[in-house]
Design a protein around this nucleic acid. Structure first.
Lengths: 229, 229
DNA sequence: TATGATGGATAGCCGTACTATCCGATAGTT
DNA sequence: AACTATCGGATAGTACGGCTATCCATCATA
């Protein structure tokens, strides 16, 4: 399989494949001559993985490089988790994190085994800080309820990983789950918001695919315009 | 309050404030002369909101403009939800979405009131498609468990919004919750992953802040290097 | 009336993710 | 053997997003 065939089967432009080769995301094909390389199924798989991570996972080229390296290495699954987490969460300097919000997070996480450096802990604190800075501070049990949901999701994640035998398979699932699980969850969350909203304020109307009772999807027009003192 | 004071209290560079003014994210101050403008508390609040949306929420300038316009308008809360959802979820063309994955999502969402155009439904389908393309297909109850967690989170969201009186407050919470809730949740999810992992494989070690039993945060070295046929 | 800050307009910068062009080597056809 | 299309690789260019820097006339203050 030459590069153009690889391009055709994956729908990734040749120029982009060359770019990934340059960036070290994709291994070069077997050279039978200085300008004839052979690519195989492994390359197809890898290329699809790269696209998924970058396009949907939103992890950049550098991030893709680091998680792919983790998959290809022989490190244990927990360490792969760590790298995947570090990669998807952009780096946060604990220094510019108000300790109050770290405390709030730690309170919500009471009893959990989470290291202080866990990227998620820091990210959660930063999110809370931003929410508070944006003027929303009185959040009652909101955070705690999020925490419970997060526990469910994390259990599902780990169960799924545990179900695999091969360490390569495990590693790939860890990376894919970490990078794309966020996207999946937020999609489902938005769907759930519409559902709950519909149930509460328009309850009684029939289920999906029919009603014009679409609570949250009513957006249109109303763009721009913004004044204030 | 002049622009430099606004800059000082919010820690946003003057040049950046000017940029936001140009982009219509922030209203101009009251001009007492062609080069003397007065800014007030409302501007401080708004500026902090903008920073939170852009820095943490990852919503771009254009996205910020559209949700801010929604806040400032007098549209009903459900419509604000719709706009916030459209804004945080990047547009997906249903055409390049394999119907099989939409079906899978719809199966997981069975019995819910969700319109076919709901951005979350489409985003979830795309995430599933990417996960499958990345070679992870056999996901048993994973999606369903995510769905259950999403329902919890959405209920928490709606409860919180319902607790507000003022429509402006409601609208701001909708926007902030939609844009920053994802960040909060994924942070908590990562923390939960470490917790569950620790409980399962190192169970018995004491709670946070102590043990070296940090399952997922062990990442380090092991960067780069990647070969394959 | 001199000094420095102010607001606004314009142009430039930087990083990221590609994309386009060129080139000499090779493969397949005749 | 000649010709043409295609190949892999190197290099340079592009598009966009989010700022950042410079300029300038105007103003507050001393």
């Amino acid at each position: 399989m030459r590069m153009s065939a690889l391009s055709a089967t994956t729908e990734v432009p040749v120029a982009t494949i060359k770019y990934y080769l340059r960036e070290g995301l994709l291994a070069r094909g077997d050279l039978s001559a200085p300008n004839q390389a052979a690519y195989g199924e492994a390359h197809v798989r890898r290329l699809r993985l790269i696209r998924a991570l970058i396009e949907v996972g939103g992890i950049g080229i550098a991030g893709a490089r680091s998680v792919l390296a983790a998959i290809d290495s022989d490190m244990p699954t927990e360490q792969t988790f760590g790298i995947a987490q570090l990669t998807v969460s952009e780096q946060i300097d604990p220094a510019d994190l108000d300790p109050n919000f770290l405390d709030r997070v730690d309170t919500a996480l009471e009893g959990w085994h989470v290291s202080p450096q866990n990227p998620g802990r820091l990210a959660a604190a930063r999110a809370l800080m931003a929410i508070s800075a944006a003027g929303q501070d009185d959040l009652r049990g909101w955070v705690r309820r999020y925490t419970e949901a997060a526990l469910l999701v994390a259990s599902a994640d780990l169960d799924e990983v545990d179900a695999r035998e091969d360490r390569q398979e495990k590693a790939e699932l860890v990376v894919v789950g970490t990078a794309l699980g966020d996207a999946l969850f937020s999609g489902l969350r938005r769907a759930a918001q519409e559902h709950v909203s519909a149930e509460r304020y328009f309850q009684g109307t029939a289920a999906r695919t029919d009603g014009p009772s679409n609570a949250t999807s009513a957006a249109s027009s109303h763009r721009d315009s913004q004044e204030e003192s």
